[in-house]
Amino acid sequence: DETGKELVLVLYDYQEKSPREVTIKKGDILTLLNSTNKDWWKIEVNDRQGFVPAAYLKKLD
């Protein structure tokens, strides 16, 4: 059920640097789980959840 889920576009590649982070690729469109922290957003990638720098993402309307 995708209702109410926010999507984000990945602006730059990011390689995870800790187990709490996930790797993302430029151009991916992913589900945003939590954006309350202005610097690190929690997203879902391939059934994995983790954090990436918010500056690497853009919210889609």
Rank of each mutant, 00 (worst) to 15 (best):
K25I: 08
V10I: 03
T3I: 13
P19Y: 08
E2F: 13
E44V: 11
E21Y: 04
D47Y: 08
T36N: 12
T3H: 15
A55H: 14
G27K: 02
L7W: 14
R48N: 05
T3G: 13
P19A: 12
D61V: 12
P19K: 08
E44K: 10
E16R: 09
D47S: 11
T23Y: 03
T31G: 07
D39E: 12
V22Q: 03
E6T: 14
P53E: 02
T3L: 14
G27L: 02
K26P: 03
V8R: 01
D39Q: 11
Y56E: 01
Y14H: 04
N34W: 06
D47T: 08
L11C: 06
D47K: 10
G50M: 06
Q49T: 12
T23V: 04
K38W: 07
E6A: 13
L7F: 10
I29A: 02
V45L: 09
Q15G: 08
V52I: 03
L7T: 08
S18R: 09
S35P: 07
K42S: 07
G50Y: 08
V22S: 03
E44P: 00
D61Q: 11
A54E: 03
R20N: 15
T36D: 15
E44S: 09
D1T: 15
L60D: 03
F51G: 01
F51T: 03
S18W: 07
L11M: 09
V10H: 00
E21S: 05
V52T: 02
K38A: 13
D13P: 06
D47F: 10
L60C: 08
D28E: 13
I24H: 01
Q49F: 07
E44A: 09
A55C: 10
G4N: 14
D1W: 14
L33E: 02
K59P: 09
E44G: 06
Y14M: 01
I43V: 15
I43Q: 00
L7Q: 12
T3M: 15
R48W: 08
I29F: 06
T23I: 03
N37M: 09
I43W: 00
D61F: 13
K58C: 11
I43F: 00
Y12V: 11
S18I: 04
K17H: 08
E6C: 12
A54M: 05
R48G: 05
L33Y: 04
L30W: 14
T3F: 13
F51V: 06
D47L: 10
D39C: 11
W41E: 00
G27T: 02
I24R: 00
D1P: 15
G50K: 02
L11K: 05
V52Y: 01
P53S: 02
K26F: 05
V52E: 01
P19S: 11
R20P: 06
S18P: 04
A55R: 14
Y14W: 09
E6M: 14
V52P: 00
T31M: 13
E2C: 12
E2I: 14
K26M: 07
E2R: 04
G27N: 06
N46V: 10
K42C: 10
L60W: 07
K42W: 11
K38P: 15
L60P: 03
E2M: 15
K26V: 07
N34I: 08
L32T: 01
R48K: 10
V52F: 02
L30G: 15
A54N: 03
D28K: 05
Y56Q: 04
N46A: 12
L9D: 01
Y56I: 13
K59N: 05
E2Y: 11
P19W: 07
V8C: 09
L57T: 02
T23D: 03
L11R: 05
V52A: 13
R48H: 07
V8P: 00
S35H: 08
R48M: 07
L32W: 01
N34H: 06
Y14V: 01
G27V: 00
E16L: 08
D47C: 10
G4E: 15
K59Y: 07
K58L: 14
N37F: 08
W41I: 02
W40Y: 08
I29M: 06
L30Q: 06
N34P: 02
V8E: 00
K59G: 04
K38G: 10
K25T: 11
A55W: 12
K59Q: 06
L7Y: 15
D13N: 08
K38Q: 13
L33W: 05
W41Y: 04
L60F: 09
R20H: 13
Y12P: 00
R48D: 04
E21I: 02
Y56M: 09
I43P: 00
D13H: 05
T3R: 08
I43N: 00
G27W: 06
N34R: 06
P53W: 03
G4F: 13
N46L: 15
E44R: 10
S18N: 13
D13A: 07
E44N: 06
W41N: 01
L11G: 01
I43K: 00
G4H: 14
R20S: 14
K5W: 11
Q15W: 13
L60K: 04
Y56H: 11
V45S: 08
D39M: 14
K25M: 09
T36Y: 10
K17T: 13
D47V: 06
R20V: 11
T36G: 09
V45K: 14
A55K: 14
S18T: 13
R20C: 12
A55N: 11
S18G: 15
T3K: 11
